[in-house]
Design a binder for these strands. Structure first.
Lengths: 247, 247
DNA sequence: AAGTGGTCTAGACCACCGA
DNA sequence: CGGTGGTCTAGACCACTTA
C-alpha cells in the first residue's frame, strides 16, 4: 500500500493559520477590526460556520476578542502561551499510588549552618527540628524513600502523630496549628545515593536516586517545613501534566 | 423601566450544565462513556450542533475526553484544582538560565517497538523521526543534556531548523505547522547515565542523571513530539513553585 | 460494516451595538 | 435602522475505531 497522502488540514485550521499569519505580519494592528464573518466567508469561499470555527481558534489563542454587535478586534499580534499544572491536594505531589507509613529513625534539634541554610533556603542560625525517616508502603516491602523532615520547633507537638499510615507533615501542621500551606517550592535533582542512605533503603550504594527538596510555606511566605527526599531510581517517578490555560 | 426578564440561557449551556450535574452526581463513572451525540440530540430535542457545543464546554472544563470513532469518555467528576503552578512558556520547563544551542548527532526513521511505545506512550508500530542531540550552552562548555527527540514524520521539514541557538522543537512545530501545543506531559526519574551517553556528555559512566521524558500534545490530545532527556546530576535541577489557588 | 466524533454547508432568527 | 456576532436547525460526507 502506498504511503497515505498527508491529509489536508481542515479548512477552518487553514483559515485560522492564514489569519494568524496576517495578524503576526502586521496586516491588522492591535485594536484593529478583523473583517466581519460574512465577508471572510465570501472572500475565502467557506461557510460562516467554518469561519467561526477558525475565529474561535484565534480567540482561544488570545489573539482576538469578539463582541456581539461590534466585531472582532485584534488583541495581540502573537500568542504568549501560558501553561498551568494543577493539584487537587498537595499529597498529589508525592504521587504514591498506595498508602504509606512513616518510620522515624532519629530526631535532632539543629541549627542551620551555611550549607543547610542554602539547602533549606533559610537563614543560617535558624533552629529546626529534624527527623530522619523512611517511608514504606503499607505492606511489607522495602522503603520508597528516605526523607529528612525539618519543621519549626514551634510545631514539635506533631512529633507524636508523625508515625503511622497516611500521614503527611504538612497535613499535621494544617490540622494542629491551623496554618494553611499556601505555597510549595519543589526542587528536583539526581544524586548518587550515599552509602548510609542506601543501607537504609536497601539500595546499592552510589546508585542513582531522585533528590527532591520541598519547602512548605504558610501565609506571609513563612517557611514552615522542609523535606529532603531520596527516592531510589527504580522505585519512583514523578509526573506532571501541563495544560494550556483556558481549556 | 421594569427589570428585564432574565433571558433564558442558550440551549447548549443548559445541556452542558445538565450533563455536568449528572456527571458530578455519579450517573456516569470516571471512564464511562457519555451517550453518543445523536442520542443526546434526540433525547433532548436539540440539533447535533447544539449537543456538540455543550460537549465542547465540558471538554474545555476537562471533564471529558473525545475520540473520533470511540466516543466521549468521562475523565473527571468535577473540576477543583487547589494548587497550581504556571509557566508563561513551555521553554520554562527547561529552565536553562542561558540560551542554548542544539547539535544533531544522528537521525533515524524508527518504528516503535513495545519498549519504545511504552516509553513514548504511543502505539507499537507508530512511525517516528528520531534525532539524537546534545544541548550546549552558547559559550564553549560541556553539554547540559543529551536529548532524543521524536517527531511525527509529517513534521520532518523542521529538521533544517533544528540546529542553532535558542531553538525548541515545540516552537518549530507551532511556527511551521500552525499546531498548538496544548498539553505537556512530563515524567521525571533518575538514571545511571549509560556509557555511550556519558561519553557524549563528558560525564562519568554510571554516574547519576536526571531522566526526563516529555510528551507534547496538540489539540485533540494528539501526540506530536516526545523528547527523552538525560541531564548530568551536577549540571541541572528542576524547580517548580506551587501556589494555593486564588493568590 | 456499523457507529463514533470531525468537518462543512445553507439557511434562519436573535441579541446587541452604534449611528 | 443596518450590521455585527451568538445561537440554532437539518442535513451531508468524512475519518477513525472496533468488530
Amino acid at each position: 500500500m502506498p504511503a497515505a497522502a498527508p491529509a489536508a488540514a481542515p479548512r477552518y485550521q487553514q483559515l485560522a493559520e492564514r489569519l494568524r499569519r496576517e495578524i503576526a505580519a502586521g496586516k491588522y494592528a492591535v485594536g484593529a477590526m478583523l473583517p466581519p464573518e460574512l465577508e471572510l466567508s465570501g472572500r475565502h469561499g467557506v461557510s460562516r460556520h467554518t469561519v467561526r470555527e477558525a475565529i474561535r481558534r484565534l480567540a482561544d489563542m488570545g489573539l482576538i476578542t469578539r463582541h456581539q454587535g461590534i466585531g472582532t478586534r485584534v488583541k495581540a499580534l502573537q500568542v504568549e502561551p501560558r501553561y498551568t499544572a494543577s493539584l487537587t491536594d498537595v499529597a498529589d505531589l508525592f504521587q504514591y499510588t498506595q498508602r504509606t507509613r512513616l518510620k522515624v529513625l532519629a530526631e535532632h534539634r539543629v541549627r542551620a549552618d551555611t550549607a543547610l541554610a542554602a539547602l533549606l533556603r533559610c537563614k543560617p542560625g535558624q533552629r529546626w527540628l529534624k527527623f530522619e525517616t523512611c517511608r514504606y508502603p503499607i505492606e511489607d516491602a522495602p522503603p520508597i524513600a528516605y526523607t529528612e523532615i525539618y519543621i519549626l520547633p514551634a510545631y514539635g507537638r506533631i512529633r507524636a502523630r508523625l508515625e503511622g499510615g497516611g500521614v503527611w507533615v504538612y497535613g499535621l501542621i494544617e490540622q494542629h496549628y491551623g496554618e494553611r500551606i499556601v505555597e510549595v517550592q519543589q526542587e528536583i535533582g539526581a544524586v548518587a545515593i550515599p552509602a548510609r542512605v542506601a543501607r537504609l533503603l536497601g539500595a546499592k550504594p552510589r546508585s542513582p536516586g531522585l533528590h527532591v527538596v520541598r519547602g512548605y510555606f504558610g501565609s506571609g511566605e513563612r517557611l514552615l517545613s522542609v523535606s529532603v527526599n531520596v527516592y531510589p531510581a527504580e522505585r519512583f517517578k514523578l509526573s506532571t501534566h501541563w495544560r494550556l490555560q483556558g481549556r
